[in-house]
């Protein structure tokens, strides 16, 4: 903890944050812009938020997106963590391939092939089929993140605990899991992000009336993406931020791997 603050490091990191937030500022600012065009600043207004409140379709789609992202990220985090832990053991040759290939596969192909599968087993397309598809492409991201963390974890810790007579489960719960937590958390966040933003795979696996926010937004592309979309994006970011910060306040231990 005694590392001196490195000025150069801080400046370059700040610049990267600037890069990340420059477009975001535009998204948020334009949600208050009094022009349907989303092109230049005209004047301040709340009206897009007002309009949004009455836009059943958009709010329903946002709700669908949140449900899907939460469930898929949750399931993918559990499965991906298991895969990541198993992968750090080199003996398994097949698993890394199975985990990496979904990341490597073009989204369209995955969408189409999952569609074929769902049709083959006669499954009704809807929220469930979207979730199953999202979990599929999220597992790899979590697994890689966990594996990266795991691969340089000191195996001596676990071995020592086992030698001292701790059960595998206790070892996992009290040593491995806390140590892995930052990797799991990073993977889970990625999964959530990927799920909430996915368009291509969702398009193919969505059924009647299970529109998600990206589907809704893409349907507006042709005419104009109105500031309502900026407004719903702003609210969504705010909501997720509040939920996550709130959760980390409530149980800091889980989030910090302490």
């Amino acid at each position: 903890m005694m590392i001196k603050k490195n000025l150069l490091l801080w400046i370059s990191a700040a610049l990267v944050y600037l890069f990340l937030y420059l477009p975001l500022v535009i998204v948020v600012v334009f949600s208050f812009n009094d022009s349907r065009l989303n092109a230049e600043w005209v004047g301040f207004t709340w009206k897009w938020y007002g309009k949004l409140l009455h836009n059943r379709e958009m709010l329903g789609a946002a709700m669908n997106s949140l449900i899907i992202a939460t469930v898929s990220a949750g399931a993918a985090t559990i499965l991906g963590t298991l895969a990541g832990m198993a992968m750090s053991q080199n003996r398994l040759r097949f698993l890394p391939l199975l985990v990496l290939a979904p990341i490597a596969m073009p989204e369209i192909l995955m969408g189409v092939s999952l569609l074929l599968l769902f049709i083959m087993v006669n499954m009704t397309l809807g929220l469930l089929s979207i979730m199953l598809a999202h979990i599929t492409f999220c597992i790899g991201f979590v697994a890689l993140s966990v594996q990266a963390r795991m691969s340089s974890m000191d195996p001596a810790l676990v071995e020592a605990a086992r030698d001292l007579g701790a059960s595998p489960w206790r070892c996992f719960r009290e040593i491995t899991l806390p140590l892995l937590m930052p990797g799991i958390l990073a993977g889970g966040l990625m999964a959530f992000t990927l799920s909430i933003d996915d368009f291509v795979i969702t398009f193919f696996t969505a059924g009647v009336g299970s529109s998600t926010l990206p589907l809704q937004i893409y349907s507006m592309v042709k005419i104009a993406v109105t500031p309502e979309v900026n407004a719903v994006s702003t609210l969504l970011m705010l909501l997720t931020l509040v939920v996550i910060v709130g959760a980390s306040r409530l149980s800091p231990a889980i989030f910090r791997g302490e």
Partner: peptide
């Protein structure tokens, strides 16, 4: 740390298309 990490990913909870459109405004 948590907050800084969260800040990295926050922009990505807005929609992909909305972000690209924001860049198009910048590049316009």
């Amino acid at each position: 740390r948590d907050l800084l990490l969260l800040l990295v990913i926050l922009p990505f909870w807005s929609n992909f298309l909305v972000r690209i459109y924001a860049w198009m405004i910048i590049f316009s």
